[in-house]
Amino acid sequence: MKRLVSMAFATASALLLQGCAGWQSALDPKGPAASELAWLIWFFTGLCAVVWVLVMIALAAPLTMRSRAQAEPLAIDVGADGRKLRVVLIAVALTAVILVGLTLLSFFANRTLAAIGSDAALTIRVTGHQWWWEVRYEDATPGRILTTANEIHIPAGEPVRLLLTSTDVIHSFWIPSLSGKLDLIPGHMNVLDIKADKPGVYRGQCAEFCGAQHANMGTFIIAETREKFDAWWNDQLQPAAAPTGGEAKVGQDLFLRRPCVMCHRIGGTPAGGTVAPDLTHIASRQTLAAGTLTMSRGNLAAWIADPQGVKPGSHMPVVDLSGDELNAIVAYLEGLK
């Protein structure tokens, strides 16, 4: 029996600790902001656990202690009343000290978080849509301003400033391994500073219920060396590659003659829509539909053929395509790297 209890306890502990690690855990920090928040979480949790144990002991003690018999039950014990008053006063004082201490810790943590992006050289504007992320890299040279979607590339080891806003409802930007949550509010700009300690891929999520596909509004922060980041930016600034194969050429012609061009933009072509993700280099991304599907030919075809089946309620309409037309458009988009 004892062995079964031990095994059950070990299994339960392992399951509980699964939430403390992984690429979407606030307790697995990969940057200074997340490290500060994780330390704060552990400290608050530990202190509150100690307080809870002490309160339980204080409640249990009177129930287990046997009261002394008194000759006169109605007699007032001045000494006992004084001791009880001192205990209450000490408890009130400790409560006040704990609350003030936690408040000060939160204040200094906020100061640390605010200082992370004080010397940020890179500014990225992130706009929330139902249900995807528009990502715009700001630059003093207009020709180097870059717009992409759902994936945010940053140089590892360098602070980055994110300007957050929304075009429709309130969203919330959260990369647990790198930072805390911050809302994206229509008509208002919030500022979030992040920094990744080392190269890696960090998953994020909209943390504010924003409609039917809130759960499928993911994003990825891709931190890489400065050299790789600069090379990626320069590649993304290039217009879309011209199709080479016959099927891809047919696909480009179909894309430009269908309603796709009303919503999507592809650099170097007449497609100039701005209400949906930029597709100039769509095949270079890791996922489709804001993290809903991994990037592959099959998933690309499934998303185009039946977007409402993949992501019900999304604003991507169903376009009537034959099998050959669908394959041609997929072949074209698959070459946009």
Rank of each mutant, 00 (worst) to 15 (best):
E224L: 08
E224Q: 02
E224D: 14
T225C: 11
E227R: 08
D230K: 11
A231K: 09
W232E: 08
W232K: 08
W232T: 14
W233F: 15
N234H: 07
N234R: 14
D235H: 14
Q236A: 15
L237M: 12
L237D: 10
L237Y: 02
Q238P: 04
P239R: 11
A241K: 13
A241N: 11
A242R: 06
A242W: 10
P243R: 10
P243T: 11
G245R: 03
G245W: 10
G246D: 14
G246V: 06
G246I: 07
G246R: 06
G246C: 04
E247N: 05
A248E: 00
K249R: 14
K249T: 06
V250T: 14
V250Q: 13
V250I: 15
G251C: 02
G251H: 00
D253F: 08
L254E: 01
L254F: 04
F255H: 01
F255Y: 10
L256M: 09
R257C: 12
R258L: 12
P259E: 04
P259H: 07
P259T: 11
C260E: 02
C260M: 07
V261P: 01
C263R: 02
C263M: 05
H264W: 08
H264D: 11
R265L: 13
I266G: 01
G267L: 12
G268M: 13
T269F: 06
T269A: 12
T269C: 12
T269W: 03
P270K: 08
P270M: 04
P270V: 15
P270C: 08
A271V: 06
G272E: 07
G272V: 06
T274D: 07
A276H: 00
P277Q: 05
D278F: 01
D278R: 03
T280E: 08
T280R: 00
T280P: 02
H281K: 13
H281Y: 05
A283W: 01
S284T: 09
R285C: 12
R285H: 14
Q286V: 11
T287K: 06
T287Q: 10
L288H: 02
A289P: 00
A289T: 01
A290H: 01
A290D: 03
A290N: 01
T292P: 05
T292H: 06
L293M: 11
M295P: 11
M295T: 07
L300G: 04
A301S: 14
A302V: 06
A305W: 02
A305P: 03
Q308D: 10
G309W: 02
